[in-house]
Simulated assay, not measured.
Amino acid sequence: MLERPLPRNPMRHALKYMLLSLSLLAANAATAQVPSALATCTRSANLLACVDAEGNAYSVAAAGSTTYLRGFEVAGKRYWAQTNSRYGQLTFFTGLASDGEAWVGYSQRVGWTTRNRFSSSGGSSGKFTCSRITGC
């Protein structure tokens, strides 16, 4: 019996990149280097810019409790933008891609765990949990 690979969910990968970039933004170092298999990032006072080994690129800018993300996804050849608004332990996000896809969701931090839920106009929806110890 042949096994089929699971369908690739670009929204889930975008969210993981977003969560990775937010964690890097919280770091205190002036320049961050992530293992080359993930991404190489450069940081200034309020901007983080990253490029991964596949050529996907994204940037994160923070202003108060709002975070602005922009990026380019190689696989879909599309640009995207997302805005995150934080209210205590809860972060709401909305995004729009150059192909017209829109998405909404939230992340809720509970101790060392983050619960994430999203849905998009492209039909994707889901939830996943990330932990500082075990990852996503």
Rank of each mutant, 00 (worst) to 15 (best):
M1K: 10
M1G: 05
E3A: 09
R4E: 11
P5V: 09
L6W: 11
R8V: 04
R8K: 09
N9P: 10
N9E: 13
N9Q: 05
P10G: 14
P10A: 10
M11E: 00
M11S: 05
R12H: 10
R12W: 01
H13R: 08
H13Q: 15
H13V: 15
A14P: 01
L15T: 05
K16Y: 05
Y17K: 10
M18T: 02
L19N: 07
L19Q: 06
L20T: 06
L20Q: 12
S21P: 01
L24Q: 08
L24R: 06
L25R: 12
A26I: 03
A26W: 03
A26N: 09
A27H: 13
N28H: 08
A30Y: 10
T31D: 15
T31P: 05
Q33W: 11
V34E: 12
L38P: 08
L38V: 06
A39F: 04
A39K: 07
C41R: 13
T42F: 08
R43A: 15
S44W: 00
S44E: 08
A45T: 08
N46V: 06
L47D: 15
L48S: 12
A49E: 07
C50F: 06
C50Y: 09
C50M: 02
V51Q: 12
D52W: 08
E54F: 06
G55E: 00
G55Y: 02
N56A: 02
N56S: 08
A57E: 04
V60G: 11
A61T: 00
A62Q: 11
A62S: 12
A63E: 14
A63N: 10
G64D: 06
G64C: 00
S65V: 13
S65E: 12
T67N: 12
F72G: 02
V74F: 08
V74I: 12
V74Y: 03
V74H: 05
A75S: 13
A75N: 03
G76R: 03
K77V: 00
Y79D: 13
A81E: 02
A81Q: 14
Q82Y: 00
Q82R: 00
T83V: 06
T83N: 12
S85F: 07
R86M: 07
Y87E: 15
Y87F: 15
T91A: 11
T91I: 03
A97E: 07
S98F: 09
S98M: 00
D99F: 07
D99Y: 09
D99V: 08
G100H: 07
E101P: 09
E101K: 13
E101M: 10
W103M: 05
W103Y: 02
V104L: 14
S107H: 06
Q108R: 15
R109D: 05
G111P: 01
G111S: 09
G111I: 09
W112I: 00
R115S: 13
N116W: 08
R117C: 02
R117L: 04
F118E: 00
S119M: 01
S120Y: 02
S121T: 05
G122M: 03
G122W: 03
G123P: 02
S124V: 01
S125T: 01
S125P: 00
G126I: 03
F128C: 04
T129S: 10
C130K: 14
C130I: 11
S131K: 13
R132C: 03
T134E: 02
T134A: 14
G135P: 00
